[in-house]
Amino acid sequence: MTQEQAKVPHPARWGVLYRSSGPLWDSAKERNLKMQRCASCQNWLMPPRPMCPNCQSMESEWVAVSGEGTICSWVTYAEAPHPAFDSPHTVVLVDLAEGPRVISNVVGIDADELEVGLPVRVVYEDADDVLTLFKFERSA
């Protein structure tokens, strides 16, 4: 399968509605990344969930984050696990400045340049008309 034929996998493609994280993906599409936060105790809820594990409040809000962060960890697949991705394929875990951690990819940074604590900032990439991905590039 070529890169053009393979689409980035996401549940939305199977006609399955993603539930808890809908606003996250909507915010990426709007290029204004938001994370879920407990409306009662301001605990970040990542991954998104219906209840705050800290105070059991079911009230939450979606709050825009700065998009600044640092690299927390990463893996590099010698062979990409899906035809939508090039090989080798690197996946990163990013510590957002506000606290939550997200899985993502980096843009313009080679795997051998990655280090824990490397400062990054968000960039947006339309995978297609369904999905906009939030990725990270080197900052400063």
Partner: peptide
């Protein structure tokens, strides 16, 4: 599926 697979 929702948060990891889109990034491979």
């Amino acid at each position: 599926y929702d948060l990891h697979h889109p990034f491979g």
